[in-house]
């Protein structure tokens, strides 16, 4: 960790010792996590490991119970989605969080509509939305004025991603963005993920598909039962090791952050 931190410069987003419980369920335990500009950090872990919970804490959807949240080296508190986006953090949630009853443009600008005085500036929003979709080389959408309810799963995914990259943000977090996609669209999204990082953004990618992870990720962080098992450079590990990290929390040749006995950590 410390060695990596110096090697990669300072992380733009850094979490230290994050704890989060839902009632009696201790979902995140002392989690450390960091994202670096220009790099794709993959966040992996089994179902229920706490990946989505972690990014919802980053996005201000869930308040954290304890721990430090640093952005560009400064301690910050994120009380809600508006705080997160004000910092420059954009998140595509696993359930996409789109309004079916609104059209593509309306969804992309939801909560941040452009106005001239108090009147919605539909024309310029439509133009910007179209431009962004084009830059993502999205050609499958018939119209930006289509209701989101009428879109296919992949198209919805694309709209959700376009909504996140619309804002010239510094950190983009994608929770299983390829889960609903076919082969070609998955390739497109992965290429986009890489492109965003190459443009200097810090990208966090949550995925169960390790082939995808190894294709684009610079770093891999593995969550195991709510604890960070390891954070490694992608080129330093092989796929079977990551599988082991995901399923057991440790693997040979990788220094684990978990306490010596995993069981202890789990029951604590």
């Amino acid at each position: 960790m410390t060695a990596n931190a110096t090697e990669n410069g300072t992380p733009i987003l850094q979490l230290r010792g994050i704890n989060k419980s839902f009632g009696p369920v201790h979902v995140l335990k002392q989690v450390n996590f960091a994202a670096y500009p220009g790099q794709v950090t993959a966040l992996v872990g089994d179902n229920g490991a706490g990946k989505s919970t972690l990014i919802k804490c980053i996005g201000g959807i869930h308040p954290i119970d304890s721990g430090e949240f640093l952005f560009e080296g400064k301690q910050v508190t994120v009380h809600g989605p508006r705080d997160a986006s004000a910092l420059g953090i954009e998140i595509v949630y696993q359930d996409l969080a789109l309004c079916d009853n609104l059209d593509v443009v309306q969804n992309m600008f939801l909560g941040r509509e452009q106005t001239t005085s108090i009147v919605l500036d539909e024309a310029s929003m439509e133009e910007r939305a179209a431009k962004t979709l084009k830059s993502l080389s999205v050609r499958t959408l018939r119209s930006t004025r289509q209701l989101v309810a009428s879109l296919s799963g992949g198209q919805r995914q694309t709209v959700a991603i376009a909504k996140a990259v619309l804002w010239n943000s510094k950190v983009v977090i994608l929770d299983e963005p390829t889960a609903a996609l076919g082969v070609a669209q998955t390739e497109q999204v992965l290429a986009l993920v890489r492109r965003l990082a190459d443009q200097g953004l810090a990208v966090v990618l949550i995925s169960h598909n390790l082939v995808d992870v190894f294709q684009v990720a610079d770093r891999i962080a593995a969550l195991y039962l709510g604890q960070l098992a390891a954070e490694v450079k992608a080129k330093d590990v092989r796929q079977p090791q990551v599988v082991e990290l995901i399923t057991t929390g440790r693997t040979e040749g990788v220094e684990s952050e978990l306490p010596t006995s995993v069981d202890e950590g789990v029951t604590a």
């Binding site: 959807i61 969080a97 789109l98 609104l102 939801l110």
Partner: peptide, 11 residues
């Protein structure tokens, strides 16, 4: 339409 989506979109 979708209260949760509205919330996470910052409304």
């Amino acid at each position: 339409g979708n209260r949760e989506a509205a919330r996470v979109s910052g409304i």
